[in-house]
């Protein structure tokens, strides 16, 4: 490389900027590769495995890798399994709507009506504190609340509103919906509050000075600006509810079978191929939901 010693820059010599860019890029890739490899090996590969095994042959207690669509055919022709898809979608839609309806007014209050920063933070912290209890304990806590001898029935009976305990409260779809709404609505409150609190106070003042009513201000300013929060919250809630099985397992008394419950019970009876089929169906549903939501907001910008 005698060219290096001459002062005239030769065309073959890379400019320092190119070299620096290349080193920076190499450094970024090196820093990134452990994470990417981890995610590929321990997330993408298992997910691929689920798809692969869904085409395996299921015998009574084992699977073998002879490819077949038998599991798929059985799954798609079974009213139980198809019913599980329906139940999953129904529970998801109701919980999503419920968390939004329950959570939005709270977010509106904390984000817009509470002016004091400290109070705002305190209220948000109060919403997050329950997360410091184990998820399973929070689920199980609904049993003494909703049971026939639970707190609600006891109170209602004491007040003389009902004479017989309400039996639909626990071990029903209702208890699953209530439990999920309570556990997941914070994921709706958080992002929406964040977006509403970010709205410039002067914009609302200006609108008020121009004589806009609260209804107009809400419709024209607050609601549109809070939409990214709603979407982010909806993504959180959807992803968690669609993959749920524990709440249904502990509060529905086996009356509600979500796709997650199907997977768990199939694995329990070593029906790996059926579990995999249910897993693929679940993946398709979740992918569709997230894709739809991401059409509306760019997650990377909102974070």
């Amino acid at each position: 490389m005698t060219a290096m010693t001459t002062d005239l820059p030769l065309t073959s010599e890379k400019s320092p900027a190119t070299v620096r860019e290349a080193t920076d890029r190499r450094r970024a890739l090196m820093l990134l590769s452990p994470g990417v490899i981890w995610m590929t090996l321990f997330m993408l590969l298992p997910l691929g495995m689920v798809v692969y095994v869904s085409f395996w042959t299921q015998t009574t207690f084992a699977v073998n890798s002879t490819l077949t669509t038998a599991s798929w055919e059985r799954f798609l022709s079974s009213p139980t399994y198809l019913g599980a898809i329906g139940t999953t979608l129904r529970i998801w839609a109701i919980v999503l709507a419920a968390t939004l309806l329950v959570g939005y007014p709270v977010a509106l209050f904390i984000g817009l009506f509470v002016k004091n920063r400290t109070v705002q933070t305190a209220l948000l912290v109060a919403c997050v504190i329950p997360f410091w209890t184990s998820f399973l304990i929070r689920v199980i806590a609904w049993r003494p609340m909703l049971g026939t001898e639970g707190a609600i029935n006891v109170i209602l009976q004491k007040l003389g509103i009902i004479s017989e305990p309400l039996t639909f409260l626990l071990f029903s779809e209702f208890s699953v919906l209530v439990g999920m709404t309570q556990i997941y609505c914070v994921f709706m409150v958080g992002p929406i509050t964040f977006m509403i609190a970010r709205i410039d106070e002067s914009v609302i003042e200006a609108a008020r000075d121009l004589g806009a009513s609260f209804g107009t201000i809400f419709r024209r300013i607050v609601l549109p600006l809070s939409m990214p929060g709603v979407i982010v919250g909806a993504i959180f809630v959807s992803v968690m509810v669609l993959g749920e099985f524990a709440t249904a397992a502990s509060l529905s008394g086996r009356k509600v079978n979500l796709l997650g419950n199907i997977i768990v019970s199939q694995v329990g009876s070593l029906k790996w191929a059926f579990a995999a089929v249910a897993g693929v169906v679940l993946t398709i549903i979740i992918t569709a939901v997230i894709t739809l939501a991401l059409r509306v907001v760019d997650l990377r910008k909102e974070m």
């Binding site: 298992p46 689920v50 669609l242 099985f245 897993g279 993946t283």
Partner: peptide, 8 residues
């Protein structure tokens, strides 16, 4: 979902 990667 955890149940999915867990299964995989």
């Amino acid at each position: 979902p955890g149940v999915l990667v867990g299964l995989g």
